[in-house]
Design a protein around this nucleic acid. Structure first.
Lengths: 161, 161
DNA sequence: GCTAATCTTGACTTAAAAGTAAGGATTCAC
DNA sequence: GTGAATCCTTACTTTTAAGTCAAGATTAGC
C-alpha cells in the first residue's frame, strides 16, 4: 500500500503549475529542473496528465504547460486515478477497479478490506484540491485528519452498543 | 496507491490459518492449493510472516504453520507493515517511513498528503483484526466504514461467546 | 518559407517486484 | 538409525514499473 513514483511526481508537477497566472506556461525543461526529473521523464508524466485533460499544452516556441482548470477545481482523487492507470493490477487487486472478476469468489475474505481501503483513500482525496495543497503543510495535514474523523456520506455510526 | 501482491496473498494465507484449532497446522502444499499459489511462492510468504513472528512453524512430518497469536490479537496494520518491508521506497515516498530524508525539503507541498494518507490507512487497519475478517463480507465492509467515520480506537468486538 | 523552440509519440533500457528452483536442515514414524 | 515429510534459505528467472532516447509534429518569430 504505497504511493507510486508516477503518482508522486505527477502530483508534484501539477503543484508547480498551480500557482501560475492564467496565461503563464512552464516548459518541460523548467518542470524537470524544479522537480529534479529528467526532461524525458517529465515529458511522459505531462503527456499522461494532458491526455487526461488535467493540463493544457501549447507546442512551439513560447509553448509549455498549464492547468486545464482552476487549481481549486482539481481534486486529488482524479489526479491519483489518472496517474495510476496503465498500471493495471493483474490479480485480485482488480477488486479496486473491476468488481466482478475474481478467481477467489466465495473464498475471498479480504475482498471487502481491499474495497474498503480503496474507498477510504478515495474519499480522503476527493476532499482535497490542488489549491488547498498550496497552503502550509500543517494546514493540509490538519484537513486530512479532519476528513478522517468526520462522517462523510456514511450513515452515522453507533459508538456503543 | 495500491495493495501489492505480496500484501494481498500474505493476508490471504493468514486468513486460511485463522480458523484453525490451537494445535492444528496447515502445510505449505495445503496453503498453496487453497490460494492458487505455487508452493515456492507460498513458502516465501510464510517465511516472511514467520520471521516477523506472525505465524509459528513446525518442521518435519506433521509439520506446518499456524498463527503465532490469537486471530483476535493480530491487526491488519501489523500484517501490511511486515509484508511491505523489503519493498523500500527509493525517492520521496520515504516520507512514509523515514521522515527526515527528502531532496525536496522546502519545496515539498505533497509531503503532508503522503504522510496523511499513510496515517489514514494505518489507522483504519489498526482497528481490524484477523478474527473480524472471518465474519461475513458485508459485516467487515460495514466496519471499515465505521472506522472511517469514528475518531479512533474502537471497542474491540467479541468473537464467539 | 525558414529556423529554433517546444511538445508528442513509440521504441528501447534499466531497475524493482514477483515468482521459481534447488539443496539443506529438522522432525516424526517405524 | 533410516527414510520420508516438511520447513528454511539462498540464488536465479520472469514480469512489470520506471525511466531514457530519438525521430516526428507544431508553433512563433523572423
Amino acid at each position: 500500500m504505497k504511493v507510486s513514483a508516477q503518482e508522486e511526481y505527477g502530483l508534484r508537477c501539477l503543484l508547480q503549475l498551480a500557482p501560475l497566472d492564467a496565461d503563464e506556461y512552464l516548459t518541460l525543461a523548467q518542470l524537470a529542473e524544479r522537480e529534479g526529473l529528467s526532461v524525458a521523464n517529465a515529458g511522459k508524466l505531462m503527456w499522461i496528465l494532458n491526455k487526461a485533460g488535467l493540463v493544457k499544452s501549447i507546442r512551439g516556441t513560447k509553448g509549455g504547460y498549464r492547468l486545464a482548470r482552476l487549481a481549486a477545481e482539481i481534486h486529488l482523487s482524479e489526479i491519483i486515478k489518472v496517474l495510476d492507470e496503465g498500471a493495471i493490477a493483474g490479480h485480485c487487486q482488480s477488486h479496486t477497479g473491476v468488481l466482478d472478476t475474481c478467481v477467489h469468489t466465495g473464498n475471498c475474505g479480504i475482498r471487502p478490506v481491499i474495497i474498503g481501503l480503496h474507498d477510504i483513500v478515495q474519499q480522503a482525496l476527493q476532499n482535497i484540491t490542488l489549491a488547498q495543497l498550496l497552503g502550509t503543510e500543517a494546514k493540509v495535514l490538519n484537513r486530512l485528519y479532519q476528513i478522517h474523523a468526520l462522517p462523510r456520506h456514511v450513515e452515522p455510526t453507533r459508538t456503543r452498543a
